[in-house]
Design a protein around this nucleic acid. Structure first.
Lengths: 224, 224
DNA sequence: GGCTAATCGATAATTTTGTATCGAGATGAA
DNA sequence: TTCATCTCGATACAAAATTATCGATTAGCC
């Protein structure tokens, strides 16, 4: 099986399993069945088995999977053991929030420096990470072989900032700006689309409320 | 067509179109073709047409769509015109970052108050929004008919906090905690899974790098 | 005024993702 | 030791989403 052929939905579910399993481990539970995972996380049990299968971990009939083993398998599969150094650009609200998170290191990403165009931010230190001026990015990124760039700048400058990152050898970009980046093939871009999330939320809420109204009103307005 | 029958991927793409269109409008462009949108955003043009079709907006052959009309259609469809009041719980790094964003109001969500269990946070004011003690949540949420709860608390207390929200009439939850909430049917939950995002990023980067190594090495290790 | 070229929108095919089925293996009890 | 039962994992099926095809429509040009 080719490595890339793992479905992306599977990739997205694995961290969810991971956190669930870590919580189980904290509680002292040693074994877990795919059925139970599925029930607790709202995923079909056959789906859980398929997802876990890609990590190489095997379960035993009648008893299920070893929690510890699953955790390690997922970590290995996602390469969360090998930490990659990252630069963050845009130390605004969101940027500083991400700097505040220590937990990303357990997910393979270590933010080693942050950059901002605003001179007032430069020189500050957030959660042990210094905010540096933009001018230093290019040189430092090249010398430190930075693999991941975190983009928390305004949308207007996101494209050019991303290009700068790629120019310095950055291979993957974690993009928080609400814009589709146009970058050379091969560069990995992972978008965190907060507005997409809000779109879904808002739409569903709107539909939900209309349904409630329709229920309350007498006439069953049938469409379709 | 039933309102709920709109595919969720479509819902997720619409905000992306929206921001793209707003940028076009700022540039003064009046018309746009589905093909052009698709090319710029990396979506197939037939997909773009289907997505835009659900909003009810129609294009004209040879000229395409009116930018302004599309924007309004998407806003209406996502109900981004009608702003819903939201309470945010957990004024930590991420919570304060979200408070700092003024833009969410254009996406139908207005954060009117924030809450935190930490007494040191209580009383502060971030971006014009006061941080209140948790004890006040229940009463205020009921009286103000809060529809949306934003959950930026640690995972350990996310479930109970969500239950409290639902108990106060909150209909939709925007969940930033890395946990699957178990809530009564009908409650709308939209997860922002940062770790899922990191899982995809990390895995792809790992595969990418292995591919580069394999290319450099002589033996073409063929699997599958 | 008719022709060309571009774009739309509907329908069909393909691909991807998710769900169900079923035999095999392992555990613990009779 | 044998049997019942639970769980796994492979295979087959169904649903959803994406991509392709094709006729219809319209603006601009000759």
């Amino acid at each position: 099986m080719r490595a890339e052929s793992v479905p992306e939905p599977t990739l997205r579910r694995l961290p969810s399993y991971y956190h669930y399993l870590v919580r189980l481990r904290e509680k002292g539970q040693e074994m877990i069945s795919a059925a139970q995972i599925g029930e607790d996380l709202g995923v079909h049990h056959t789906q859980v088995r398929k997802d876990l299968a890609v990590t190489g971990s095997q379960g035993k009939p009648k008893v299920g999977h070893r929690v510890e083993e699953l955790i390690v398998s997922i970590e290995n599969f996602l390469n969360w053991n090998n930490v990659t150094d990252a630069f963050l650009v845009g130390a605004g609200h969101l940027g500083t929030a991400l700097l505040g998170y220590a937990g990303f290191e357990r997910a393979g990403v270590k933010i080693v420096a942050a950059f901002d165009a605003n001179p007032k931010m430069v020189g500050k230190k957030i959660q042990g990470v210094s905010i540096l001026p933009m001018e230093k990015f290019t040189d430092l990124a090249r010398r430190m072989h930075i693999g991941i760039g975190i983009l928390t700048v305004p949308a207007e400058v996101a494209q050019e900032t991303a290009e700068m990152m790629v120019g310095c050898g950055v291979q993957a970009i974690w993009n928080f700006a609400p814009i589709v980046l146009d970058l050379p093939q091969g560069v990995i871009v992972e978008n965190v689309a907060l507005y997409s999330s809000l779109g879904v939320l808002s739409r569903k809420l709107s539909v939900h409320r209309k349904a409630l109204l329709a229920k309350a009103s007498p006439e069953p307005v049938a469409s379709e």
